[in-house]
Design a protein around this nucleic acid. Structure first.
Lengths: 337, 337
DNA sequence: AGGCATGATTTGATCGTTCAAGTTAAGGAA
DNA sequence: TTCCTTAACTTGAACGATCAAATCATGCCT
């Protein structure tokens, strides 16, 4: 393998000093154009590349961004994070950064991971996902003035405590509900998660808002259940049994929707002795499963979100005030609704 | 934020030299137990952590492993890589390594990425996925003596040219086919990819082997098509129309199987005027989609594969001959077959 | 007692880069 | 001519760790 080419090698061949090579690459304006040109040619010729470790020692910047990847979530919804990650890797590369992965089981473990990482690899910044109420991670990072962006807004604090990018979940469920209303549905129920989670409550709120806008009463039309196919099925069964007028189900996730769909599509439902009701179902996240089975679902612009996260983080690293950003989702209409 | 703690700080507080601190941490056996104890206490007290950049400068080891993540594949099968990645992150962490992500559009671009990475971050090793015939990447790395493991066996070269871990695809389709045979099926067709891809040919071979074992003739029972839901549907339709005796379809992927399932489950198939035939379908990869819709599928032990990859890479980094490993998949039986 | 091996610790040098300060040469003003 | 400024480039030092070699005890053997 070609031996390591250092800045000194380039300097020698180009007949200039190390520092001039460094300047030609990092501060071109202080170098005479023809010198710069010559240096760049030698850089090309020798295949020189800066050694990040050495640079990091001097400047303190590692050009690394750390992000947590969860222990093998094999669920339907795991793919949301994965799609975000794919997008972020590309945006980061465009900005000259690479992603460093780590795992952590909970907030406290993640903070411990921060400490390990900061001591060892010294990442320049962090991207946090799945923010929640009383997020210990963000306050820890804020206290220490470390640059980070969250994908997910702060749920317990004012919107401007830290930079974030999020997708407007309530707008998503609202759009889904409005789509159902436009199709003539009047009794539209919601299947979501136990209240207390920011994301879940937000999604429920969008449904409620749409019903209110149409002058409809949401009372008795909402169920709270853990995320899962079986859970969605049970909740749907419960709702449809309790209220024979329900004709549509808005769900907080594709997993729940998938379960609901089983009930909605069962040809001769035990929960209903009358003539067959066609029940519309919508999901959330537009996972591959939704696409595969024709489930109408709310799509999150994840690649875009990733790019904007990188934008904001870049600003945070520059010292520019980064701000925050709420992206609109879009409804992907398929056969299920 | 707490100022950076260096090895010199620890040395001063513990009343020893830098090198003794280094030894206490890296070569404990050369340090007197009580000295070691004292040093470790100070390390704990000050919250000292080695700075990897500095270590890397001296030792040349970065404790980083690079792995490519593909540009946002939103398909059904994307999750295979993602599950592998989750597992690998954990195994790597266990061995003191972290994963560094990069993207690349093709083999040549990936080799360029190798050069960038080696010059800049100097990863200690690489994990390559989706190996194929005439893989330019492996030969490039081999020529330069760089440590790597592939998840996927070498398809054009002898098995021992480089370390690898793979899942035995032909054993998977063979198991699926045998399961169908045991259920009484006799005309079992195969839907796979155009020949020439190692993985695809291997999966077809397993089906052929199982049929041969039962003394059955595979002639006319195989179709080659790109990977996709619509492609699977078309191929299934074609097969079932051409041969009225077919009662089961073994597919090379869950995407293909999903398409096939649409045909198999259509209540009044245009392709068949006779009484309704129940067509069994099996997929490959056991994606969330398979679980969601009750598709019998071949499951790959991805977490295990990731762990073994890390094992082998660790050996390659130590200089121990790493070898290679073919893992058996398992058939997950659901309603579809 | 002298010599020597062994164990425990310390010292100086080094990895490749960039910062900060220094040098050199050329041009302009007095 | 002399002095000063500026542009262009060079030199020495430093980042924080580990390697290699040096130092200093200590114990054992003859």
């Amino acid at each position: 393998m070609a031996d390591k080419v250092t800045i000194a090698d380039v300097a020698r061949v180009a007949g200039v000093s190390r520092q001039t090579v460094s300047n030609a690459l990092n501060t071109p304006e202080v170098v005479r154009p023809e010198t710069r040109q010559r240096v760049l040619e030698v850089v090309e010729e020798l295949g020189y590349r800066v050694n990040f470790a050495a640079r990091q020692m001097r400047t303190g910047r590692s050009k690394l961004i750390a992000i947590r990847i969860d222990p093998a979530g094999d669920g339907v919804n795991g793919s949301v994070f994965d799609r975000f990650l794919h997008g972020l890797t590309e945006s980061a590369a465009g900005a000259g950064y690479r992603l460093l992965l780590y795992t952590a089981a909970d907030d406290q473990k993640e903070i411990a991971a921060f400490q390990d990482l900061l001591g060892a690899y010294e990442p320049d910044g962090f991207v946090l996902t799945s923010t929640h109420h009383k997020d210990a991670r963000t306050s820890w990072l804020l206290e220490r003035g470390l640059p980070f962006v969250t994908f997910g807004r702060p749920w317990s604090e004012p919107a401007d405590v830290h930079p974030w990018v999020d997708v407007d979940g309530s707008a998503g469920t609202e759009a889904a509900t409005e789509h159902l209303l436009a199709a003539g549905h009047r009794r539209i129920a919601f299947i979501g998660w136990p209240s207390g989670s920011g994301v879940g409550d937000d999604r429920r709120e969008g449904w409620r808002r749409a019903l209110a806008g149409a002058g409809l009463d949401p009372a008795g039309l909402s169920r709270e259940t853990p995320d899962g196919i079986a859970d969605g099925e049970a909740a749907a069964r419960d709702l449809l049994t309790a209220d024979p007028d329900i004709t549509a189900l808005v769900c907080a996730s594709d997993s729940l929707a998938l379960g609901a769909l089983h009930v909605a599509r069962s040809p001769n439902p035990a929960w209903h002795a009358e003539a067959y009701r066609r029940i519309a179902v919508t999901g959330f996240d537009d996972t591959p499963v939704a696409k595969a089975i024709g489930l109408t679902s709310v799509h999150q612009p994840l690649t875009d979100a990733a790019a904007r996260c990188m934008d904001l983080l870049g600003r945070a690293l520059d010292g520019t005030p980064p701000g925050n950003l709420l992206l609109p989702p879009s409804l992907v209409v398929r056969q299920s609704a």
